[in-house]
Amino acid sequence: MKKLRDKEKLTSILYPVIFGVVFCILWQTEVLHLLIGADTFTLPVPTRIIGILIDNFAVIMGHVKATLTVALIGLVAGSIFGYFLAIIATLFPKWGVGGLTIASAFNAIPIIAIAPILNNLTKDVSKDPNTRSMVAKILVVMICCTVSMSINAFRGFTEVKPFSEDLLKSYAASKKTIFMKLRIPNSLPYVFIALRISVPGSVIAALVSEYFAEFIIGVGRMIRENIVLAQYASAWAYISVACVIGISMYILLLAAEGILLKGRK
């Protein structure tokens, strides 16, 4: 049984890796270009992209740092704020449920729409264009992360197993104790459901908000700048960096989930 599961685990990693390797070989040998009718100018071969990454490593890392700062601060602040909103909604269910419905409407607003607005709203925050751009970008990421956290955490607080509240009440537990012993631990898997949406979301929101920011910095902005200048190889280098950021943050999340939700089904 265990052997079978190990085998499944192995193949679930192995097959995508094989697919990736084959894909890169086709790409490098320009077979891919023939298949999709592209040229090496708009779609440079992997070795050229890697070459650019190595040559410009220090510059690229500067942009990575800017993007990561925006994504992480926005993710953490937005998630904490969303969790806090969920607590309030649980304590005051009459207003809370309606409030969260309105909050979920925010989720429907595209990033492209809110980014320029927030740019405008934050133009007096600081004299330093980099700082005020950062604030605007972080706010965009925050909005994206707040909503999914507040909705999921609220479900985690309220969707408890039948009788589990009664159990605590039968021991004369206070509202606070019920929160500490039942609602908060029950919300943990829901927090991870939210983070599985928010972590990739925060990277995307950071990349897109950089497009509209006043100050020119960040991986997302560099993708745009290079495409505008028809420097496709550099653009691809930044695109691959963006992929690495998103994937590594997701892997970190899964690792944290594995540790914190250990023992749960």
């Binding site: 197993k161 009788f163 589990s164 012993k181 631990p185 029950n186 749960r264």
Partner: peptide
């Protein structure tokens, strides 16, 4: 209770 109502994080 009718079901065990165990806390699955414990």
């Amino acid at each position: 209770f009718q079901n065990p109502v165990l806390y699955d994080w414990r």
